[in-house]
């Protein structure tokens, strides 16, 4: 009986093949004599087999899921290729970049300049890029955009977040400068501090060819980026690519792309979108806190 006390604690390790040879011999010797412990071992083995079967038998990969994963990996590969060398988004610098970046960035620069000088009525400005092959219209109104564009917009927000560009502004006192360039009230969101988020800086970035503010935060080992934009020009919440949910009585629009989540709200004509590696629930919670 006292042998049982020695054997019982090692039944799991015995079954899992994790005992030293010496202990295996000892245990086997005891098992030959003890029916109770034999049954303990057999039952543990049976449970092991059944659990394995149950876990693997309960789930099947659907073709649509496999397709989705392949698409996500392809997107990641495309991002890697596009990001060689890693992108440095510098909206105001005018340095040569890849065209996909140049078009919106140039538009943003033009807009920022226009806002600063007050010389534009905010309508169409034709931008010619470096290679001359990809002209872009600055003020393409987002409402006219198709689902593909919406998809691209979400991708772009995620990509900007993922590439983690160095902020142009890291001093809160310089926020008014950002505000002027964006042409919208942009302020730090003290609500977010309550979640333990710390502001790292901000930049002007193009969102749908409109200058928008991007504010970078750190939270508990994660990063998130808050984009502040004109909700009428960029009606992110009206797109079909984000799904509505209600967080603390506010409609929040959420989605995931490539392992990142994105959540958007609108507040008095200003749109806020949050891109992060946190999950959708957390990103929805954070963005819903912005007033």
């Amino acid at each position: 009986m006292s042998e049982c006390r020695k054997v019982q604690p090692v039944v799991d390790a015995f079954v899992d093949g994790e005992l030293s040879t010496e202990r295996v011999f000892e245990t086997e010797e005891h098992l030959e004599r003890c029916h109770g412990c034999q049954e303990r071992v057999s039952l543990t083995q049976a449970l092991h087999v059944s659990t394995r079967r149950a876990v693997h038998g309960a789930t099947q990969v659907s073709p649509s899921f496999e397709q989705r994963v392949r698409a996500a990996l392809a997107a990641e590969r495309a991002r890697e290729e596009a990001d060689q060398p890693p992108p440095r988004i510098q909206p105001m610098s005018g340095k040569p970049m890849q065209w996909r970046t140049v078009v919106p960035v140039a538009a943003a620069a033009a807009m920022a300049l226009a806002f600063a000088s007050g010389k534009t009525d905010g309508k169409r400005t034709l931008i010619q890029t470096d290679d001359g092959q990809h002209p872009g219209l600055a003020n393409v109104v987002a409402a006219n955009a198709g689902a593909n564009d919406e998809e691209q917009l979400i991708e772009e927000l995620i990509r900007l977040h993922a590439s983690s560009p160095p902020p142009e502004v890291t001093e809160p006192t310089l926020m008014p400068q950002l505000e002027r360039e964006v042409g919208l009230p942009v302020r730090l969101q003290p609500e977010l501090n309550r979640y333990g988020a710390s502001w790292q800086g901000g930049s002007v970035v193009p969102v749908k060819n409109e200058p928008a503010a991007s504010l970078f935060y750190h939270i508990d080992g994660h990063r998130f980026t808050v984009y502040v934009f004109d909700a009428e020009r960029v009606p992110l919440q009206k797109t079909n690519v984000l799904k509505p949910r209600v967080v603390r009585d506010r409609p929040v629009f959420v989605g995931t792309r490539r392992g990142y989540s994105i959540a958007a709200v609108e507040n008095r004509g200003i749109g806020y979108a949050l891109a992060t590696d946190l999950d959708t629930q957390e990103s929805a919670e954070l963005v819903a806190s912005i007033h």
Binding site: G36, A46, L47, V49, S50, R53, A58
Partner: peptide, 25 residues
Amino acid sequence: STASMQAMRDPETAALRPLLQQEIV
């Protein structure tokens, strides 16, 4: 009891008595 432990497993398949997979899950 030892008898119950024995009854719960199936010596043929070395698994538990055909308990439904759903039950295990």
